[in-house]
C-alpha cells in the first residue's frame, strides 16, 4: 500500500478535515442538460490550496455529502469551481443551490494530475468522456498556457453523449483558438451535426501527437478509460506515461472508512489519479459488484 501510494505521487502533505467549512455559492452556470458549475467562496475568506484533479467533499446541508472534483485551476483568480451532475438526491440539491446559498466543503483530497512531471517539450494527450472533462479542465488550461510559452502540443479528445450535451463547449473552443488540437465526438448524432459520431478512441488515429514523447491523461467512465488507455498503448504510448482517474464510493476522504477500496488502494487517499502502467491496468481487471 505504501509503495503504491508513493508511486501515485500523492503529496505527503495531503490531510483532510472531517468537518465541512461553509462556502457561499457566488456563481452558478448551467453546462448542459444536467450539469451545473458552482462557484464557491469560503465564508472565512481564506482561499483553498489544491492541485489539479483533486476533489472536495461537498455537503448539501440536510441532504448529504458527496465527492466532487474541483474543476477550476489552482491559483486561478476568483472562486473555486465544482461541476456537479444531477444524478441523485445530494447532487440534485447541490445543483439547485441558488446564488447566495451555502454548501459545505471539506478537502481537498486525493492525488493529482502532476503536469509538472511532464518532460519538457513532450506532447500531452487528454482523453475525456462527458463530465470527466471537469477534473482536467484546470490542467488543460495551464497546459495550453505552457504550450503558448513554447511547451509541447496539447491534444484534447472529448467524447460526449450528443451534440446538445457537449460540456464546457466554451472552454473547448477557447483551447482550440489558443492552439490546442481539440476534437469532439458524440455517441448519438442528430440531424445536421457536422462533427464526429462514435466513441472517443476513434479520434486517436487522426490525432497527430508523438507517441514516443508524450504524456496522457484520461478521465471519464471507467470502461471508456480502459479502452482509451489500451488504444494509447497500441498507438505506442508508454503505459507509465498514462494517468487515469479512478473513482469509487468516496466517503471519508482520508483513507479511514474503506468504502473506496480498490485492490490495495483506498482511492480517496491513493487516488483518484493513478498511473495506468503497473497500477490501473491491473485494477481495471478487478471484478467488483
Amino acid at each position: 500500500m505504501t509503495a503504491t501510494a508513493e508511486h501515485t505521487g500523492r503529496p505527503a502533505s495531503q490531510r483532510g478535515t472531517l468537518s465541512p467549512e461553509p462556502y457561499r455559492v457566488t456563481g452558478r452556470r448551467i453546462e448542459g442538460a444536467d450539469v451545473v458549475t458552482l462557484a464557491l467562496e469560503p465564508h472565512h475568506g481564506r482561499p483553498l490550496t489544491f492541485a489539479h484533479g483533486q476533489f472536495n467533499m461537498l455537503t448539501a446541508f440536510g441532504v448529504g455529502e458527496i465527492a466532487i472534483s474541483i474543476s477550476s485551476a489552482p491559483g486561478a483568480p476568483g472562486p473555486i469551481e465544482h461541476s456537479v451532475r444531477d444524478v441523485g438526491a445530494v447532487t440534485h440539491a447541490l445543483c439547485r443551490t441558488p446564488i447566495g446559498g451555502t454548501v459545505g466543503v471539506r478537502g481537498p483530497f486525493g492525488t493529482h494530475w502532476d503536469i509538472d512531471d511532464i518532460e519538457e517539450g513532450a506532447d500531452v494527450v487528454v482523453v475525456v468522456g462527458g463530465i470527466g472533462l471537469a477534473p482536467l479542465r484546470g490542467a488543460v488550461r495551464d497546459l495550453v498556457d505552457r504550450r503558448r510559452a513554447g511547451g509541447g502540443g496539447v491534444f484534447v479528445l472529448a467524447g460526449m453523449r450528443s451534440p446538445d450535451q457537449i460540456l464546457f463547449a466554451e472552454d473547448l473552443e477557447e483551447w482550440r483558438r489558443s492552439g490546442a488540437h481539440v476534437a469532439v465526438t458524440v455517441d448519438v448524432g442528430i440531424s445536421g451535426w457536422p462533427g464526429r459520431v462514435g466513441v472517443v478512441t476513434t479520434l486517436l488515429p487522426d490525432t497527430p501527437f508523438d507517441p514516443t514523447r508524450c504524456a496522457a491523461f484520461a478521465c471519464g467512465p471507467e470502461i471508456m478509460m480502459r479502452f482509451a488507455a489500451r488504444a494509447l498503448v497500441d498507438r505506442g504510448v508508454d503505459p507509465r506515461q498514462i494517468r487515469v482517474s479512478l473513482e469509487r464510493n468516496m466517503q471519508c476522504g482520508v483513507g479511514l472508512c474503506g468504502h473506496c477500496q480498490l485492490g490495495p488502494l483506498l482511492l480517496c487517499r491513493d487516488g483518484p489519479v493513478v498511473p495506468y502502467g503497473g497500477v490501473a491496468d491491473r485494477l481495471f481487471m478487478e471484478r467488483q459488484r
Binding site: 468522456g129 467524447g159 450535451q165 455517441d187 462514435g198 471519464g220 479502452f227
Partner: peptide, 15 residues
C-alpha cells in the same frame, strides 16, 4: 466493438 460500447450509453444518466 465501438457499437457495443455505445450501447452502454456511458455518458447517460443511470436513471
Amino acid at each position: 466493438q465501438v457499437a457495443r460500447v455505445r450501447l452502454l450509453d456511458l455518458y447517460g444518466n443511470d436513471s
